[in-house]
Design a protein around this nucleic acid. Structure first.
Lengths: 380, 380
DNA sequence: GCAGTTGGTGCTAACGTTAGCACGGAGTAA
DNA sequence: TTACTCCGTGCTAACGTTAGCACCAACTGC
């Protein structure tokens, strides 16, 4: 598959070939005995005594080629283990069949679900998936986009960092792309996301309705579009519930850090006037919080009501069952895949703005109750 | 990034260019107004009035080019947004910078951790990661390998299906590759894996030591190398404990199916003489089992002792804490990455067999105790 | 029997990049 | 002055594939 770096023999020397067994052996072959030698259309052509064009056309099932020739070519190609070289095809103007997914961290099951759905949908269309992790670092993001660009990927699905580098913006302008979850205005107006504001408004409203007044929020930084929206949703619910905006004990920080979740919840519970309820704004933070609460033996919902973010395996069996914000990950990922596949198959005319907002949904389990009290009879 | 399929203008027409503003505009450009036009070394050369060779060499930092020219070329390249075309470079004999990871399912956190570690280690070396999911289907696996082969990936890390297709074997022969976890003899002797036999032997021995005699095993099919090894390990421990081999209530089935885990444990617990202990042989099966046991309200370890497989977030807070088989995923992934990077950077001479076996480790928590009894005082 | 059509194939150029060779000018030694 | 070296650059071919055009033989219709 990789080209062995053997001395290059000019074409003219190819004529000094000899028949050994069934296969023409050229000077190049002799110098590579045993080493994996990549078969080209020319090898097939030489063996069958036809031209490269004929081989190419036979493999492309061109109607001008006779059935008999096609058969012989296919036979030979199969025997010799011919695999077309997409790099060469791309040079003739064909586009690549690779779509890149640029995300912060594949270990976040949110993103791995997306990767899976994309991969599944794209495989059916003959596309391959390139995976690039940014770790929420704009320079890493830039480096990846440069590589993707050099590899001429056909499309990009990206969960952008907070403030993408100017060069990243430039690079993305040259390739069909789609923002996922987070939306940065400079990266265009094709976006698939969640109604973060509404999701957090509902989650918080649920706690307000239960009678909580000291409600904490732990989420990603305002710098991130998702972080800002979720915080806004949280505050909206407080306001609607007649609570002061700044009644919130808000802790913002790296959204992908389980550790930060543990630290933050420890801090929140230490002070006097500790909150009686907690809303979370990221999956990883939720994981950290759950671990910490388990270890500290905090009584949920007795001492603290908790609403998580996302619905991971384990959330349902955590303590009394975690009330949480469910996200339509699968639907979103499928939507992205279909949009991009259609976009890549049709002419780039339909490049207008596109926005798809999926709603979150509150999943009621046992981790929320009136402050200090028992869980009310549940309706679900 | 993709080449717009506009009418192709022969080179000769390029001479009929005119200076518009600072940039030469050729016939090709005019036909593409607004559309993203990919910059080549030739565009830079024309703009600066030098040859393509000079541009190429300047960008490659060739010592023969004067510093002044290099500066001008780099300046122009940057301004015009030039991004080298790796497809063209590959045609000149360069290898690609893409390594493929072929796994059953990225949603399995085992594999997503591996993908993450690989990606991180490879990014530093300038490699990109291609992700291919097989869903444990050999035909899907084959289709992916064909595509990867056409794209001339530099290397492959694969968790093979039970019985890879003969063509898959052929394809893998032409590319440096590495088997991960599962090992199929036809795919060569480079392998990174876990000591499955020993891991399951220890886990089962732990239950035998506690006094259990009716121990069930739930794992992947014997067809898979890992499935076979784990089952062997389980049986070894039974034998060593003086229990008959077939004392095991063994349930084998699709290892990636959470649903199967739920169904299987339901069946195991229904019969008379239900087992008093259960050992698991896959992460996904463990997830299913934990969900089912939680829902049915089975008392652990009172009614049933459980040893899980892997250590997912959530395993520590499940019920009394899950005793489980911890796997050195990170170390293995890093090992794979380093091995492959070194393999790709050096000549293909060092292609000898290589095997790395990592040990699993039993993590003791609260889900195991003597049959019917309370957990003994824990030593950890 | 001859012009015209059709079916099957070959030749050639082109894609973007790179490496080998050639070339011209400036500088240096005899 | 002549011969030589060295520096910087240009020309050209090649990588594997595909598309346009040309070509030849066999057939068709008159």
């Amino acid at each position: 598959m990789i080209k062995p770096d053997a001395p290059i023999h000019p074409t003219t020397e190819r004529d000094e070939s000899a028949i050994v067994g069934k296969r023409k052996v050229t000077a190049r072959d002799q110098s590579l005995e045993g080493a994996p030698y990549v078969i080209t259309t020319r090898d097939i052509a030489e063996r069958l005594g036809v031209s490269v064009s004929t081989v190419g056309r036979a493999l492309a099932d061109d109607p001008r080629i006779s059935e008999e020739t096609k058969f012989r070519v296919r036979q030979a190609a199969s025997e010799m283990g011919y695999v077309g070289n997409r790099a060469a095809r791309m040079m003739r103007g064909a586009s690549s069949n690779v779509v890149a997914l640029v995300i912060p961290d594949i270990r976040n099951s949110f993103y791995s679900t997306i990767a899976h759905e994309l991969s599944k949908n794209m495989e059916a269309e003959g596309f391959q998936l390139m995976l690039s992790e940014t770790d929420d670092d704009r320079m890493v993001e830039l480096r990846h986009l440069r590589e993707l660009s050099a590899n001429r990927v056909a499309g990009v699905i990206i969960v952008p960092t907070a403030r993408p580098h100017a060069d990243s913006v430039k690079l993305l302008r040259t390739v069909p792309h789609l923002q996922l979850l987070r939306r940065h205005p400079s990266l265009g107006s094709q976006w698939f996301g969640v109604d973060d504001h509404e999701a957090l408004r509902q989650a918080t409203a649920h706690l307000v309705t239960l009678g909580h007044t000291r409600i904490a929020y732990l989420g990603g930084p305002e710098e991130l579009p998702t972080g800002a929206e979720r915080l806004r949703g949280f505050r909206s619910a407080l306001r609607e519930g007649g609570l002061p905006d700044d009644a919130g004990y808000t802790e913002l920080g790296p959204p992908s850090s389980v550790e930060h979740g543990r630290d933050a919840v420890r801090r929140l519970l230490q002070g006097r006037d500790a909150p009686t309820a907690l809303v979370l704004g990221s999956i990883q933070l939720t994981l950290g919080v759950l671990e910490e609460l388990s270890e500290q033996g905090v009584k949920v919902p007795g001492e603290l009501s908790v609403v998580g973010f996302g619905d991971e395996p384990g959330f349902s069996w955590w303590g009394p069952g975690l009330t949480t914000i469910g996200l339509p990950i699968q639907e979103m990922a499928t939507g992205c895949a279909l949009w991009l596949m259609r976009r890549l198959k049709t002419k780039p005319s339909n490049d207008g703005p596109y926005t798809s907002v999926s709603p979150g949904s509150l999943i009621l389990r046992g981790s929320t109750a009136p402050p200090g009290g028992r869980a009310p009879s549940r309706s679900d």
